[in-house]
Structures are given as C-alpha cells and as structure tokens.
C-alpha cells in the first residue's frame, strides 16, 4: 500500500517496500557496528590491556567458526529456510576428523583427512537440502531431526572415549600462523569475502534473495527453487566442514560434546546482524559484525574486572542483546501494513 509520489518522479515520495527493507537491513548493520565499536572503546578505556594484539587475536580466532558458518547460515535464512543441525554436524565432523587422522584409528594423510571432512560436511548439507526440497519436510523439522541423529552418530563413533593424539601437522590448521596472522583468520576472511561477493554480485545471490522474498514469484521467473535451495544447504554443510578444519585442531582433545549449542550462536549472529528470519532481506556484513560482537562479550566481562562471577552472566547478556536489537528495530520503524499482519511462518 504505497502512495505514489506527489509531484512527479523526482519528488521524495515514500520509497518502495523493497528499498525500505534494504535500508532497514543496512541500518541494523550500522547499529550492530556502532554497538561493537562502543563496546570495544569502552572496554579499552576501562582496561587498556584489552587492546593488546594477543587479546584481539584470541577474540578473532574464537569468533572465526561463527563467522564462517554464519556466512552460510545467512544465505539459508535469506532463502527463507533454517538449518539448526550445524552444531551437531560440527560435532560429527570433529569425530570424523579424529577417527581419520589419529594414528590409533585410521591415520590417513592430512590432505585426505581434510578432503574427507569437507566432503562429508557438504554431503550431509545436501541430505538436509534433499529432505527439504524432495521430501517437502519443513527445514526446521528436517534439521531438528538431523540435529538429533547426527549427535547420536557422533556418540556412537566416539564410543564415550576421547581422541587425544592428533598429528602436529593437523594441529597446525588450528594453531599455526602464516604471514603473521593465525591461519584460521585467513580462512575466515576468505570465506567472508567469497560469500559477500556471492550474495551481492553473483546471479546465485540474486536468486537467493528472490526466492526468500517470494518463492512463487521466483518460480514464475524461471528460477529453479529446489536446485538453489539444495545448493545453499550443501554450501552451509561445506562451510561447517571448513569451520571444523580450523576450529577442532585448536584443542588437543576431541570429545563428543563439540558443537553443542553452536547452531543457536550462529542463528543469533545472523538475526542480530539484521537478516530477516522470514527471508528476503539481510546480508553477510551484519552477520560478521554480530558474530564479533557476541564473541567479545565474554572477553569484555573478563577485562572489565567485575569479579569472578561476572562470566556467568554471559548468556544473559547475549539474550538481552537480541531483545534490544529487536526492540530498537521496532521503535525505529513502524512496520508496513504488509509486515504487521503477516502470519508466523518459520
């Protein structure tokens, strides 16, 4: 229900819905960036040790897996679906990596281990996509089922034991550096830039936005909706594999609980970053900023020196961040008539 411009095309009329939505998304990215900057500056003033290179590097390294999977999850949510199985998938891929690499189990060469993890991640993502497109199972149900199944498979594979002796050449992927920066940061930066370019400039990105905005219209425009969805689900699986390759070797021990609750942190980062949970608008930049913001909460609590019990409030603050983001969004803009009465569809 938009009013046409009053005095010809040049007058500042009410912008069309799509433009308003784009502005809303970029405003949320701006707000996220501002909050992140404010947090960093405030903590640095309170405790200058926060700005040490080592601390900032740790912060970035901890956030890298959320950034990597968050980029894929942004695409999944943009297309109007969701994948809550990524945490269990990360756990399964960690177990797989341990079994493939550990000298006591299979002891395969490192390139094969990494290829195996990436292929398995993409294959399980593809399976999610097939359940959604071919099986017509709603994505939240399909991936909820996979969340449970994959966790069960992980525990069967691990058999209640820990895998401890990862070869040093594999540990390098988690702890090593090249050109002065941790390897995991290079990977995260490369993934972020690739997905940003893909979402913004490639035809696939436009197709994803079109399907998320209106799947029926996209189908009429001859976009292959199932194929695009399959691709996006496979991509998030592949990226979970990438995250496993850089995150799992950081620890010296692989246990079956790795990745529990990871899916919620990733979805939170996407939502706080301004991507609409109904699909159709949003972007990768907001997700990356939000992932850094969520990752900095714990470090911030430690460096503000509020006493040892402060870290117990980390999750409460994470939750409050989302509520505040949602509230700010609501106060800043009255939703249009199309949004206000829309039914609740995940």
């Amino acid at each position: 229900m938009r009013t046409p411009p009053a005095n010809g095309p040049d007058s500042p009329g009410i912008p069309p819905l799509a433009l308003r939505r784009m502005l809303a998304a970029s405003r949320r990215q701006f707000v996220t960036a501002a909050v992140l900057l404010f947090t960093l500056v405030a903590v640095s003033i309170a405790n200058p040790a926060f700005l040490s290179g080592q601390n900032l590097r740790d912060l970035l390294v901890q956030s890298a897996p959320v950034v990597i999977v968050g980029c894929g999850m942004t695409l999944v949510i943009l297309i109007g679906e969701i994948d809550i199985s990524v945490g269990s998938l990360l756990g399964l891929l960690a177990a797989l990596m341990g079994v493939l690499a550990s000298p006591q189990r299979l002891g395969l060469p490192i390139p094969l281990v990494i290829a195996g993890v990436l292929v398995a991640g993409a294959a399980i993502g593809l399976l999610n996509g097939l359940l959604v497109t071919r099986g017509r199972v709603p994505s939240i149900i399909a991936t909820l089922g996979m969340l449970t199944v994959l966790r069960g498979v992980t525990e069967l594979v691990m058999g209640g034991e820990w895998i401890t002796n990862l070869p040093p050449s594999l540990r390098w992927f988690g702890t090593g550096s090249s050109l002065g920066f941790p390897f995991s940061l290079w990977v995260a930066a490369a993934v972020a830039m690739a997905i940003f370019a893909l979402a913004r400039f490639a035809p696939l990105g436009i197709r994803i936005l079109a399907i998320g905005g209106n799947p029926d219209a996209a189908a009429i425009a001859r976009i292959s909706v199932p194929r695009t969805k399959l691709l996006v689900f496979a991509l998030v699986g592949l990226l979970t594999g990438v995250a496993a390759v850089i995150a799992v070797p950081q620890q010296s021990v692989i246990e079956s609980g790795i990745g529990a609750g990871f899916e919620l942190v990733v979805v939170t980062a996407v939502v706080v970053g301004g991507t609409s949970i109904r699909g159709g608008y949003g972007g990768v930049v907001g997700t990356i900023l939000a992932a850094l913001l969520l990752g900095s909460i714990r470090t911030t609590l430690v460096f503000l020196d509020l006493g040892e019990s402060a870290v117990y409030w980390e999750r409460a603050i994470q939750g409050a961040f989302i509520l505040v983001a949602v509230l700010a969004d609501h106060l800043a803009s009255r939703p249009g008539p199309d949004d206000s009465l829309a039914g609740a569809r995940a």
Partner: peptide, 19 residues
C-alpha cells in the same frame, strides 16, 4: 512488537538460562 516467535524465544532461551 509482532516479532517472530522463533527470534523472541531464541533470545529469551539464552537470557533466561543466563539469568
């Protein structure tokens, strides 16, 4: 606020557990 229930309860899931 007409916010999607998935988002609201995802937030309060973290907030209440954190509390």
């Amino acid at each position: 606020l007409r916010v999607h229930p998935l988002i609201v309860t995802l937030a309060t899931m973290a907030a209440f557990r954190g509390l």
